[in-house]
Amino acid sequence: MFSFANMADLFSLILTIATLGTGIVYCLDKFVWQKKRQANDANESKTSGWITQSRSLFPVLLVVFILRSFIVEPFQIPSGSMEPTLLPGDFILVEKFAYGLRDPVFHETLIHTGEPKRGDIAVFVDPQNPKIDLIKRIVGLPGDTIIYRNKTLYIKPACKSGETCKPAFKVPKSYVGPTKFTELGTTLNEYKEHLGSVNHMILRDPVLPEQYLSYYQQDGAEIGEWIVPKGHYFAMGDNRDNSDDSRYWGFIPEKNLVGKATFIWMSFAFNHKASSWEPSWIPSSVRFKRIGTI
């Protein structure tokens, strides 16, 4: 049964109904009611107010509907799980058509346009809680074997029947140094990771031990090892020790994908002093250098 728990889904439903409703009124008035008024020598100014308003709203709603449902959707970064790539207060645009054109209410794929690639930053509906959307980096594709041990990522790529399967390889990374990012007073270390064709930064906590006992345990696999099922993906946050991701709850169903993060269109900082009178939700500054990046 369809659930309206996710506010984005509820907004999509309302937008769809409003667009459809005003569209029907627009078409009826243009092709039926207007002709009747002209036949009766009625003046256009006598048109009912609600009809006039519907005709005015329909083009605007139609443009918003097409843009939001099939092209791009804004998304705010709510947490630090993707630091240092994405920071709380970043506003990004999500390319909705990157992984297929879907209907805006039930999310069934209408036209297949592409699939997530290793290294993509994807927005998806949380498999544990459909009320919220998450953003993580795609690490594992269908059929891949993902291994995460000693805070090191290994990948054994999927192979088709009859092909020579490649062994698992260690994803290359190089140490950059300590950062300005902290967790419970501990300075986090930064590494440059080479995930396929994507080079990006990750953070690691030098004090926090690996949380093996909290990892999602897949049937028949060792702890810290996962085989990505068909039609699913494996995702991790760039802030490796401070991210609730596939290591802890499993895989992302293809139907949960919302789109691909493309660029930051606005970035606000909320660094208020303890003595500040300003509410915490009011930005303290704009991070102009982050705009246009990802």
Score class of each variant (00 low, 15 high):
293 T>F: 12
251 F>E: 02
13 L>F: 15
152 T>L: 09
108 E>Q: 15
138 I>K: 00
248 Y>C: 06
265 W>L: 03
140 G>I: 01
215 Y>G: 00
118 R>Q: 09
81 S>H: 07
180 K>W: 00
124 F>Y: 14
223 I>F: 04
234 F>Q: 02
139 V>A: 07
18 A>F: 11
162 G>R: 10
20 L>E: 03
40 N>Y: 06
128 Q>A: 14
138 I>Y: 00
136 K>D: 09
199 N>C: 04
289 K>P: 01
291 I>A: 07
247 R>L: 02
145 T>M: 08
250 G>V: 05
277 W>M: 06
55 R>M: 14
191 Y>K: 08
134 L>S: 03
127 P>T: 05
47 T>F: 04
3 S>H: 14
32 V>I: 15
207 V>A: 13
115 E>K: 13
10 L>V: 11
19 T>N: 03
31 F>M: 04
248 Y>V: 02
280 S>L: 13
276 S>W: 10
167 P>Y: 03
1 M>H: 07
28 L>I: 15
176 V>Q: 11
170 K>V: 09
186 T>L: 07
274 A>W: 08
224 G>F: 09
223 I>N: 13
185 G>Q: 01
83 E>K: 09
127 P>I: 03
12 S>R: 08
252 I>N: 04
254 E>L: 05
152 T>H: 09
284 S>Q: 05
86 L>S: 03
132 I>Y: 11
266 M>T: 00
16 T>F: 15
59 P>V: 13
123 V>I: 13
55 R>Q: 12
275 S>Y: 13
178 P>L: 15
222 E>A: 11
37 R>D: 11
129 N>G: 07
279 P>N: 08
186 T>W: 06
276 S>C: 11
114 G>D: 12
72 V>C: 07
263 F>K: 04
29 D>V: 02
197 S>A: 14
111 I>P: 03
23 G>S: 01
61 L>K: 06
290 R>I: 06
97 F>M: 14
54 S>K: 03
225 E>M: 10
60 V>F: 12
32 V>T: 14
135 I>M: 10
139 V>T: 13
139 V>C: 07
55 R>K: 15
277 W>F: 08
192 K>I: 12
6 N>T: 11
93 L>D: 00
80 G>S: 09
216 Y>H: 11
6 N>M: 07
48 S>G: 08
269 A>S: 14
